[in-house]
Structure formats: C-alpha cells, structure tokens
Design a protein around this nucleic acid. Structure first.
Lengths: 163, 163
DNA sequence: TCTCGTTTCGAGACTGAGAATCAATTTCAA
DNA sequence: TTGAAATTGATTCTCAGTCTCGAAACGAGA
C-alpha cells in the first residue's frame, strides 16, 4: 500500500517538536527520548500512517520501543493539534500531520490504498447550509470518496501488463 | 440514545421478507425461523440500529437467539440490498433499512446520538467533479456531519432545566 | 549533583466488535 | 421419511486499541 500526500517541509519536524515541547511543559508532562523518537519518525514520513506502520518505523530506530507508547504518543500529538486521527474504512486509525494545515477531505483508492487530499469550498458551504436547515451546529464532518485511482483503473483494463 | 428516521411503511417488513425469501432461494440458502424473526424485528424498528440493540430486541421475542446469528443475518440482509451497514463514529456498525430507498447522507448529534438523514444533489455533483479532476472513479462515498441538534443546543444553554 | 515525587516506559493482560469454528439441529428436495 | 447441505448457539479467535503494573526516567529543588 503506497500512499502519497503533499511532502512535508524539512523544517516541519523541528517545528512540531518545539510546539510539542511547550505543550508538554504547559501541563506537567515530561519530555522523553521515546516521544522525541516517535514524533521525529512520524514527521519524517508523508501521508496517512497507521499506528502499526509507525511502530514498525520506530522500531527500526529503536527496537525497544513499545507499541503502547506509540499509541500514547500519537494521542498526545493529536491532542496537541499536531496530528489528526482519521478513521477510514479498514478499521485502523491513521494519523496525518496537522501542523499549519487547514481542513481537507479525502479520495481513497480501494485497490492500492492511495489517499489523495482535496479541498472544496463549495461543498463546505453546502454542508453548512444543510446543517442550518436542520438546525444543527456542526463541529466536524467527514467526507470520503472511495473508488479507483487512475493507475488502478488502467491496470484493471490491461490485466496482462501487470506482474 | 434515541434515534429518529422516516417511519417505515407497515408493508415494508412484509415486502422485505418476500424479497429476502427469493434472494435466499436463489442461492440455495434456507429459510429459518430465526432469520424471519430477526428480519421482522429489524423492519419493525425505525432508525439506525446497532447489532447489539437488535440482539436485545430479538431476544425479547426469543431469548434463545444467539448474537452470532444476528450478525450473520444482518450481513445477509446487507448483501441482499435490504439493509445497509453504516459505520459512524463510535465503533459499532449500525444498519438501516435500504428497501427502495436511494442514497442519502447523515447529520449526527454527538450529544444525544440522534441521526438525521439528508440528500443534496448539488453536493453529490460537486463530489463527482472533484473525483473527475483527480481521475478517480468513485464507487461509494461517506458524508457525515457531526454536531449538536437543536434540542441538545437548547439543553446546553439552559442546563438548569435538565434532569 | 543528588534526591524524590511524578510521569512514563514496556510487556502483557484485557476489552469490545465482529468473524470463524464446531457439534448439534433444522431445512427441504427427492 | 430420508439425508445431504445449511444453520444454529456457544465458544473461541482476531484485531485494534486501552489498561495495569512494577521498573525506569525525568526534572525541580536542595
């Protein structure tokens, strides 16, 4: 399963670590080697990572890292607003970097797992209007389009060319 | 957690049972007392039911019904196109009747759990356009708006009036 | 630098939703 | 009525994620 996304700027990891440091200090938490390593690992990747994938990457740097710690750290990152948790089809939570990014939705290829982000102001407006009509105050929403990406479409129509 | 939805027409349960019967017959499955009971129970309710809720209701009619059978039966109903599975936030699958209904999306109150359905042709069109721009062929999508319904908003602004 | 109260760590037990297994039972066409 | 095939309920298993607990690490103050 390869995934693509806007590549993170090189400075992002550093900026995130700073922000996390102050967030952690502000509430009496502690800075630890493991957290730094996990945060570093996360921000050095692109795309939408599952905790499992992240555990694997983190263990490459330090095999003693426990999965529970990765879960805990990603939760902290999400609370701090530096990562956001996404629940796509498939059951696992995936995290994406959230530093200085604004809202977007997703196109997900059900064949290769590729995830593409998009923004559409008109759709957001229409959603607000719908909510208004029903007298709802929307706090967040989820819009996901599932289907085949162009690459997978071509592969399906020319099955001989594959593998 | 109360939930509302368009009330099912009285004939719906009967129609569903007929459709299920032919669907079952068509592929060598068998009609059983338990399936009838579960299907009946499902169609006599409105809204978006979790399997758990359905198990409870079914057990009221026949305490010997097993949870596994309810899971299996709802899967059959979904395969037959008579129910559709929805995965809202919260982790459990909820089923809604799908007989002769066309596509719609959901507004979900995060306070009382109430689920309201809506349709919006313009949003669908814009989704299609987005997919086209990215050369995706969309097979299905998910649009969920989470927030507070009008009742819960009022309750929150007048906390004294509650309980 | 040392101390000591807190926080965090890793391992493994636990949870909850749902799928798989299996022996016993039921269905239904012949 | 018979018997192969499907189904049932109970139980076990899986999977993602959380909780627990004793040990280790952090860091503010002495």
């Amino acid at each position: 399963m390869k995934r693509t996304a806007a590549p993170r700027k090189p400075s992002t990891a550093a900026a995130a670590r700073e922000r996390l440091a102050s967030w952690i200090a502000a509430r009496g938490l502690k800075a630890t080697r493991q957290r730094d390593l996990i945060v570093d690992t996360f921000f050095s990747q692109t795309g939408h990572l599952s905790v499992d994938e992240l555990v694997e990457k983190a263990k490459q740097r330090d095999p003693s890292i426990g999965a529970a710690t990765v879960y805990r750290t990603m939760k902290i990152l999400a609370d701090a607003g530096l990562a956001s948790a996404r629940h796509f089809e498939g059951g696992q939570t995936r995290y994406e970097a959230a530093l200085d990014r604004h809202h977007h939705d997703h196109l997900i290829c059900t064949s290769c797992g590729n995830i593409v982000e998009f923004e559409n102001e008109r759709i957001e407006e229409l959603q607000d209007r719908v909510a208004e009509e029903h007298d709802f105050t929307v706090t967040h929403h989820k819009l996901e389009l599932y289907g085949l990406c162009s690459a997978c479409k071509q592969q399906q129509s020319h099955p001989n060319r594959q593998r």
